[in-house]
Design a protein around this nucleic acid. Structure first.
Lengths: 150, 150
DNA sequence: CAATATTCTTGACTTGTTCAAGAAAACGGA
DNA sequence: TCCGTTTTCTTGAACAAGTCAAGAATATTG
């Protein structure tokens, strides 16, 4: 993704254009479902001296402006992805934590309606499918999920 | 819930019956969607000297045996509930973090099928509805979600 | 009641993330 | 282009939730 595009994205949501932000946005676009640590690593390939705090700040800002999406399945650290606005979901491997995208099961977003909303004003239905990834399910078929490390 | 019932539940899944486990199981049954800290507090009402580690251990064991369910929406600490096996879901308030139960939108569990499973062996579809609880939505109607604390 | 396996206590430690103060950089206007 | 203002970044400390590990205590089996 060309540099000017990243710049456009930042300006488009009213953010100042800074090197750390461009690098972070680029990293999230390149890496799939990356955690903060991987993003810091990728960013430092271009800008060796960015502080981890700058990355955290950038991720928060970009998330607040909707340029990236933050996901955090139970037991995982925060992860970020660039595919936003299409309400897709995720499959997560119980054994190794691998994440893959899954298109919305029922068409347009939000694809689900709560049967009883308890008076909540709902704006999003997030779906996480839990299971075993191809590698884990074939490698240790007799192993019960979540107990692989004991 | 009578003490013997809790005992039965533990024995039923092949666990030793200990005071901490009974207290933890009782606490999770009493409190709704409680975090570990609240559970520790509740447990110490009965057993003032239990270590936090014993509570963590018990919660892990009970979760592994399916007597309690662990939920952890993004940005929240781990929470536990006693309603297990019926594949119900949750609404979470973006502003205050309140959680309420929601029955499964589509009947029997698992109520959803991934459109493309990427070869994952899926055993559960977890749904989290995000929005504002009645209190938060009426109290600060002009406030944009997630920015209430800035 | 004794033997054995499991569980609990104690206390240190890790990890991911946030806080805070000042230095540096980006943007708008002269 | 330069200046002033506002925002962002750096630095370094702090924090909370949860985990690890070794030995003491307890539950269960025979």
């Amino acid at each position: 993704m060309p540099l000017t595009d990243l710049e456009q994205m930042l300006r488009g949501v009213g953010l100042r254009v800074t090197r750390p932000r461009i690098a972070v946005l680029g990293a999230v676009n390149t890496l799939a479902h990356a955690d903060t640590d991987s993003i810091i690593g990728k960013v430092r390939a271009d800008l060796p001296d960015v502080s981890h705090q700058a990355v955290y700040d950038s991720l928060h800002t970009l998330t607040a402006k909707g340029l990236v999406r933050r996901i955090q399945p139970s037991g995982s650290v925060a992860r970020y992805e660039s595919r936003v606005g299409d309400n897709h979901h995720h499959v997560v491997c119980r054994s190794c934590g691998a994440i893959a995208d899954v298109d919305c099961a029922h068409g347009a977003a939000p694809c689900l309606t709560a049967s009883n909303d308890h008076g909540f004003v709902i704006d999003e239905a997030e779906v996480i499918y839990w299971g075993l990834c191809p590698d884990c399910s074939t490698r240790v078929p007799e192993l019960s999920p979540l107990e692989g490390s004991t």
